[in-house]
């Protein structure tokens, strides 16, 4: 099977998955006891006012009618209007997604460029000092809560030393770069707005490092163990016996195979971080999807909950697809299909 057929099949297969996710989320969010109409009109509102609000929000219809109406709307590309702020959910998501995407992308980028060399180094220099130090650092990364790291980083680099800015995506005095993507780094590069670029990069350093640390630890350990597995295989021994230089053995022959599990982790982490970086977003006042999702759930803002779930589901599926395609490139024995 060629790649185009493979990708097309996978795209078709996404439809029932998405449908299933919408049904489950719709049911789950609606069976939770609670009335968004009540939350909306304030605690002192009379029953009559609440009733009118429920009517307006269409909450009085039977559940299957509500779902059917939602589905029809969804097929037109309309995710509905947020109950909480009365704005189109698409607009809310479009404003928050770039912030989350930028943070996630940079965090994982930092992760990968540090984890790969460190993983190789610790595998090659097994049980040496560098391996022990990395093990301790990895342990710290996995076992320390991200909010603690976040506050500590801010305390040192922002509050005490003043080297890096405080929370937010960009300085208040700097207007956000003009551009359509909402990705500040890309937009400021495209519009050659160096001030915005500097400010947004400086604002990105701490949250991106904070977020990447946990995954950095996991990835380093993972690359180390798969490298060790691969380095003990027969074909590596054969390569060594044939007199291939060590550098070529490691980078050309061992690393490619050792990367397969790492690619899986990167793909899954991407989906997880896009909507799940709530703690980092809170500490660094980062206007991303995580805090929007949590607020929506707390408010029982059904259209927003649905919108977020669909978006995160799409991202997961896309990340998985990309990972599967990458397998084919990394390991020729793996065939698409």
């Amino acid at each position: 099977m060629n790649m185009v057929t493979f990708v097309s099949r996978r795209l078709v297969a996404m439809v029932p998955v998405l449908l299933g996710v919408t049904i489950l989320t719709f049911l789950l969010s609606h069976v939770i006891p609670g009335d968004p109409a009540r939350l909306l009109v304030g605690q002192k509102a009379s029953d009559e006012v609440v009733k009118r609000m429920r009517e307006e929000l269409g909450l009085n219809d039977p559940l299957h009618i509500q779902y059917w109406n939602y589905l029809k709307q969804l097929l037109r590309g309309d995710l509905g209007t947020s109950i909480r702020n009365r704005r189109p959910v698409v607009q809310d998501l479009a404003e928050r997604f770039p912030a989350s995407f930028e943070l996630t992308f940079v965090s994982l980028f930092i992760c990968v460029i540090i984890a790969i060399p460190l993983g190789i180094l610790t595998a090659v220099r097994r049980n040496h000092v560098v391996d022990h130090v990395t093990r301790v650092l990895a342990l710290l990364g996995v076992s320390t809560p991200v909010f603690w790291w976040g506050l500590l980083l801010l305390l040192i680099f922002y509050f005490r030393l003043g080297w890096l800015p405080g929370p937010g995506r960009i300085d208040l005095a700097v207007p956000p770069p003009a551009g359509r993507t909402g990705l500040y780094i890309l937009d400021s590069l495209l519009s050659r707005d160096w001030r915005a670029l500097g400010s947004s990069l400086r604002h990105l350093v701490l949250p991106a490092f904070c977020l990447s640390y946990v995954y950095l630890a996991i990835m380093t350990r993972m690359i180390r163990s798969s490298m060790l597995d691969v380095l003990n295989l027969d074909y590596i021994r054969t390569a060594r016996a044939n007199g291939l230089p060590e550098r070529a053995i490691i980078f050309r022959h061992a690393l490619r195979n050792a990367l397969v599990p790492t690619v899986t982790i990167v793909g899954l982490s991407f989906g997880e971080l896009i909507g799940g970086a709530i703690l980092t977003e809170t500490i660094f006042a980062w206007p991303g999807l995580g805090s929007y999702m949590v607020d929506s759930v707390l408010f029982l803002d059904f259209p927003a909950i649905m919108g977020c779930t669909i978006l995160v589901c799409l991202i997961y599926m896309t990340a998985n697809l990309v990972v599967d395609i990458a397998y084919g490139f990394l390991d020729p024995r793996i065939r698409w299909g």
């Binding site: 506050l151 801010l154 305390l155 922002y158 509050f159 405080g166 929370p167 937010g168 809170t282 500490i283 660094f284 006042a285 206007p287 805090s291």
Partner: peptide
Amino acid sequence: IVPEPGVQRM
């Protein structure tokens, strides 16, 4: 908007 009280304090 700064949600974290510790960061507000700083």
